[in-house]
Design a protein around this nucleic acid. Structure first.
Lengths: 123, 123
DNA sequence: CATTCTAATGCAACTAAGTTGCAATAAACC
DNA sequence: GGTTTATTGCAACTTAGTTGCATTAGAATG
């Protein structure tokens, strides 16, 4: 099922801003914040962006990640994988090869590791 | 080494508000937000609390956790353990028996699982 | 114990991420 | 094409967390 099908099947309309957001998210290798998104698409309206993120989360199209700096980052959930947030340089890294770890009784949807990334561990 | 020793050894002064914050944090079984803290200690000043959290983080006394609702939760780092945040009921659970999982090249300081907790998985 | 130095407090004002209300617009379905 | 209703875009708002600064009080020193 394509992302566009997921949008319409969940009762959401396929609008121009949503298509643009979807195509930009597709090009990202990392989760992206509103600040970063609006640098790519400067005409986007803040509330349209955030409301779209809410709709996309309901349609299980994206995952949200809370950074250690109080911002939200968004990523298409094509391949679900853990993330690492460096508390020193604040970079968010996708730990692509790693699978999600399951927990007895819980339904795990995402895992975030925090600490120091390899670059910051050296210095 | 006690927490009070960690404070002074890191060049911080052992003040009245810090002692009170430390004693209240000691009594918590879960990470606590400013909102929750100030319900216990209503006279605390917001900036004193947040600045104390910053100092305590520098002294490696506490760990901060970002909730899915854009708030920060704080916990004494006596025993470091992963946490689970339920995206349905928003409860934060300490996964005490679990150890931190290490990652090649990274220095892991905390792990957060997100998804649905056992209670919300049923419903 | 009194003095001095400077970190920390407490208050108010501020910042910025994210939300909400609402009139105007445009998908989707006939 | 016309109708219905979700969505947009704008401005105003909310709220967690930060900052500036004058005052207070740890802690070290004599």
């Amino acid at each position: 099922m394509t992302f566009e099908e997921k949008i319409t099947l969940n009762g959401f309309r396929l609008t121009a801003p949503r298509k643009k957001i979807l195509s930009i998210l597709t090009n990202q290798k990392q989760p992206i914040s509103f600040e970063e998104y609006s640098a790519i698409d400067p005409l986007i309206d803040k509330s349209t962006f955030y409301r779209t993120m809410q709709s996309f989360e309901q349609a299980h199209i994206i995952n949200g990640i809370e950074s250690d700096e109080g911002k939200r980052y968004f990523e298409l959930n094509e391949t679900i994988h853990p993330h690492f947030i460096c508390q020193h340089c604040h970079a968010i890294t996708c730990l692509n090869p790693l699978p999600l770890i399951s927990l007895e009784g819980y339904h795990v949807e995402s895992i975030i590791f925090k600490g120091k990334c390899p670059l910051c561990s050296d210095s």
